[in-house]
Design a protein around this nucleic acid. Structure first.
Length: 462
RNA sequence: GGGGCUGUCGUCUAGCGGCAGGAUUCCUCGCCUUCAACGAGGCAGACGCCGGUUCGAAUCCGGCCGGCCCUACCA
């Protein structure tokens, strides 16, 4: 019987949860679900300087919001707990000690300044830099602070990438690298493969930035006598819209919290992310999550990085919004419209639905309901029409159809076009040039408020 | 500097030896009270560049150029 699939993501809580994490999480979950495997969340918090517990919470919240739930993790435990690397340091230390004992790693007493100097020297001589192995051959005396360095064996590392095929790296080009920092914490290159082995991870699915890291980790796995993961998959990177690498400072789209705040639906975002770097080979673009699970395969994953594109996401999100039922959409809108009661939101849903590509836009359409628009200056002819509207609408039942019928009648009587008739009306009611259909501009407002705004604009005392 | 990955409309992509197709954006028209949605149509690519193989190259080969990643006591 085949060993059941185990995959993981290992985000680092050093800032807000970001898009790349969602993307790799998605691919991991897709694969895990397809293979009926297990999805593990492991928190990579070995950078003591930059870690913050609140960032860990943000990762949980964002992934849960997206519906990318994990089977094992720091918050839920599991057979290989703990799942926070900061709580696993004893294990790394033991493994590092074992490597030293076996002559596969050694203590390095070099100071950062000395290493910097070595690097600069190599740079000046236009020579590829590798650590000099000073501490292996001739360690300085009388120093107590040390890091642990892996002694890179010569030769070649080969592995199979599910996306890119056979990979080959020459280890002679890799210098001895540090696996344990002098603060006693492991470096990513060390902690990650150790945990993957200990946690029996079968498939490592991660961003392309780790492709060149793989030989480092494979050498460690071999040196420690672990079994290698069955396969790796290095997903293409998501680039910023300007084609550069995503940066936290310059690119807001990196921050996952933004999507929730702006009113993107989790399924729409997931659908978009799936399409960024992968395609089904058919013309289908809209997928339920289950359809994605079935359709997804690594063979059809793109090899090059893909730019993030708001326009396509907006379109997709609009498609998802339009598919929602009235009650569903009303519920989704609720958090964006705290000024309105449920009944008003429900009334606003039908005309709103086709007009949004993200939920936050509802505010742009509806804020006239809780803020008083500036009364426009009108010509006397227009004011007369306003008075006619007041008369036409005053005794009408407050329903969109009835309001519309009354208005249509007033338009005919006025002899001007609907456009000419409705434009100032819309302005008076909402203060906007773009708004919901005119009957809804009325209907959503309490009747007395609507009439008040008309009176005021027409210069009629209340 | 060294190693790795990569390059098809603005963007996401299909095609992998035989007319470069779809989606999105944009534009036009229709519907129409604005804006959307919806329907119809359109613009947009010297397939990164140069050379080779071939009757024929986006596709195969070679060189070059560009982007990204790794080359950290970051992950």
């Amino acid at each position: 019987m085949a060993v059941s699939v185990r995959v993981r993501i290992a985000p680092s809580p050093t800032g807000f949860a970001h898009l790349g994490t969602a993307s790799t999480a998605l691919y991991n979950v897709l694969f895990a679900r397809k293979e009926r495997g297990t999805f593990v969340l492991r928190v990579d918090d070995t950078d003591v300087e930059r870690n913050r517990p609140e960032y860990e919470q943000l990762i949980y919240e964002s992934l849960r919001w997206l519906g990318l739930d994990w089977d094992e993790g720091p918050d839920k435990g599991g057979p290989y707990q703990p799942y926070r690397q900061s709580e696993r340091v004893d294990g790394y230390r033991q493994e590092a000690a074992r490597l030293i004992k076996d002559g596969k790693a050694y203590r390095c007493y070099c100071t950062p300044e000395e290493l910097e100097a070595e690097r600069n020297q190599a740079q000046m001589e236009k020579r590829p830099y590798r650590y000099s192995r000073r501490c292996l051959k001739n360690p300085p005396e009388g120093r107590s602070v040390f890091a642990v360095r892996f002694q890179v064996p010569g030769g070649e590392v080969r592995f199979t990438d599910m996306i890119r095929g056979e990979m080959k790296f020459d280890t002679d080009l890799i210098g001895d690298f540090i696996i344990m920092k002098s603060d006693g914490y492991p470096v990513y290159q060390f902690a990650s493969p150790v945990d993957d082995a200990v946690m029996k991870i079968t498939h490592v699915i991660r961003g392309e930035e780790h492709l060149s890291n793989t030989p480092y980790q494979l050498m460690l796995i071999d040196a420690l006598g672990y079994e290698r993961p069955q396969a790796y998959a290095h997903m293409p990177l998501i680039l910023a819209p300007d084609g550069t690498k995503m940066s936290k400072r310059k690119h807001p789209e990196m921050n996952l919290a933004l999507y929730r705040e702006q009113g993107y639906l989790p399924d729409a975002l997931l659908n978009y992310l799936a399409l960024l770097g992968w395609n089904p080979g058919t013309e289908q673009e809209i997928f339920t999550f289950d359809e994605l699970v079935h359709a997804f395969s690594f063979e059809r994953v793109q090899h090059a990085g893909a730019r993030f594109d708001w326009e396509k996401l907006n379109w997709l999100n609009g498609e998802y919004i339009r598919k929602l039922g009235d009650d569903e959409l009303a519920a989704c809108l609720r958090p964006f419209l705290s000024q309105l009661d449920d009944e008003t939101i429900k009334k606003a849903v039908p005309p709103l639905r086709t007009r949004m590509h993200k939920l936050a836009q509802a505010v742009d359409y509806l804020d006239y309901l809780w803020t008083d628009p500036q009364p426009p200056a009108l010509e006397s002819e227009t004011m007369q029409r306003l008075r006619n509207v007041i008369d036409a609408v005053r005794d009408v039942p407050w329903e969109p159809d009835r309001i519309e019928a009354a208005l249509e009648k007033a338009v005919v009587e006025s002899g001007v076009s609907k456009g000419k008739f409705y434009t100032p009306l819309r302005d008076v009611l909402t203060g906007k040039k773009v708004a919901l259909p005119i009957q809804y501009c009325f209907y959503l407002l309490p009747k007395d408020v609507a009439l008040l705004r008309l009176h005021r604009a027409a210069n009629i005392p209340d």
